[in-house]
Design a protein around this nucleic acid. Sequence first.
DNA 1: ATGAAAGCGCTAACAT
DNA 2: ATGTTAGCGCTTTCAT
Lengths: 339, 339
Amino acid sequence: MSDNRKTNKAITLKDIAKEVGLSATAVSKALNDKGGISEKTVARVKEAARKLNYTPNIVAKSLRLNRTKTIGVIVSDSSQSFFAGVVKAIEDTAAAQGYNIILCNTDQSYEKEKKAVHVLINKRIDGLLLAASMLMKKADISFLNGFGIPFVFLIRRNESEDTDFVINDNVLGAYQIVSYLIKSGSRRIHFLNLYEESPSGKDRLLGYQKALKDNDIDFDPALVRNIKPSIEDGYIEMRSLLDKGQEITTVFCGCDIIGIGVMEAILEKQLKIPENVRVAAYDDIDFAAYLRVPLTTVRQPKDMIGCKGTELLINKIKSGNREPQHLILKPELVIRQST
Amino acid sequence: MSDNRKTNKAITLKDIAKEVGLSATAVSKALNDKGGISEKTVARVKEAARKLNYTPNIVAKSLRLNRTKTIGVIVSDSSQSFFAGVVKAIEDTAAAQGYNIILCNTDQSYEKEKKAVHVLINKRIDGLLLAASMLMKKADISFLNGFGIPFVFLIRRNESEDTDFVINDNVLGAYQIVSYLIKSGSRRIHFLNLYEESPSGKDRLLGYQKALKDNDIDFDPALVRNIKPSIEDGYIEMRSLLDKGQEITTVFCGCDIIGIGVMEAILEKQLKIPENVRVAAYDDIDFAAYLRVPLTTVRQPKDMIGCKGTELLINKIKSGNREPQHLILKPELVIRQST
DNA sequence: ATGAAAGCGCTAACAT
DNA sequence: ATGTTAGCGCTTTCAT
């Protein structure tokens, strides 16, 4: 074992150069197949590198080349089933192209998200993926543009049209599931939507309204509520609706998580799903099929969102192309027992 | 807007130095509060940095200081509910201490995991967290030790005692839940355990056996199966057991995911849980309370595992201390309707 | 085909 | 209190 191994100091180009009696430059060229080095020498160099257990210092390389082969991923909460799936798809796609990801959680905090952007910029990421970002206003886009690296929004589209994003077609998804509910007998459909500012929520409302209209049902704003996407808020809202003694036959939830809370509240009242109340939702999280009552929902293609978003970003990194692109993926209606 | 902004070239210490008429060294000292610079100058420098929108180049800093403030996180599948929770806790804890995480998935592939280690080492991570790693043999530990950075195993303990790990007490957890099952009336308890090589599975088997023994029940190896931790494998195994017409009254599953498949198989046969078959499991994933039948299980403190593991690692990074530490956290029995 | 020199941006050691 | 020099490990130019 060489001295370097013993002292745990990493092997450098210089060490290899000394070993084979060449310059560091030549070794670099040989190792990276840059040409201008005889085949025999290249072989010798590579053999020496292997023998010495050389690990290139990517930090030095990054400094020199001004790129890190690292992309930043900002997400509100990577532990949530849906986001976790998107992140996995991102990591898989990035790894396949030789990129690593630095993951940052924001817990839905605008301030935390801006701080995360700064940290990632300081680490000189080559590009940035923002999943369900809070940076949605024009000023936020300027903020992001100021750093001169490409960025792509995922899941949640942005106000300004001149940014890249990959989302599912929320209007279509809501339209599909509400149309299905109507065709299968529901006419009075409560809608526990995402909170009001959510672009996805807005789009889902459009789809809901369009489906009503196409079926000659008047839109009743009293049936729509905006709540936070949590089990607890779904539960509380549904309980309060039931306690009011209103006639409730069908509930469309802004997301599966809300749907879980809604179902809990319904079952707690000894009501049956779907016999007394039909429940539908949005997202198709991993466990949707194994819940108290298997949940009818709209599947967002989370793998596709992560994969396509990453490919789009890496493309922009490599090409320098700044033309904004919008990918709007098709959702899929998944009918299960809750309706 | 300065030329630098226009051309999108990042501001450097030199730029600030020029702006305030000092050397780059002085600026560095001022910005990092290293002392030896007058208060007035420090203020001037910081003001200039703010004005120029300076973002320190962490890559250069890393190269110079030989540390990246980045830790590598290797996990088999970050999209799985349980791991996603651990990763979230890791990220939170790391961020609070000024560290970022690079996340790598291995999909349970030994080769992929080794490759991930190499990639992370090349990126000069300061330390490594391995969740449910496949690198468990002595040779694997030598491999990891060869890189000279601290590493901590999470969830799954390692064969060699001279490595750091943070796990839950699998013997105790299994003992608790099996004891509970016995005390509440079960005597013949099927055990669909994790696959045979799993150290966690081995420990859970020990706990299972100890509980039987303490209650004067003979251990029957025929009741134990080792299967893969997937919904499908749980379903298939349970169906095959039921099809054999054996008398099955209680099933303890190696993890909640298996439990989901098991419950599906039982319900499909028109059997009732827990009236006909009682089902218990291990992990307490996020949705355990909202499954077809709310699941009795053992809660692994996933937040604690992520948090404590990260703290331990960062401690070792900072202190250089190489004494191996073992954290064995207490699990918690969670009784729900499935038993 | 190979090497010397320069420099990416930063900071530590050593002047002054 | 501030500046000069050197160097982290790498690659790119420009020589030879």
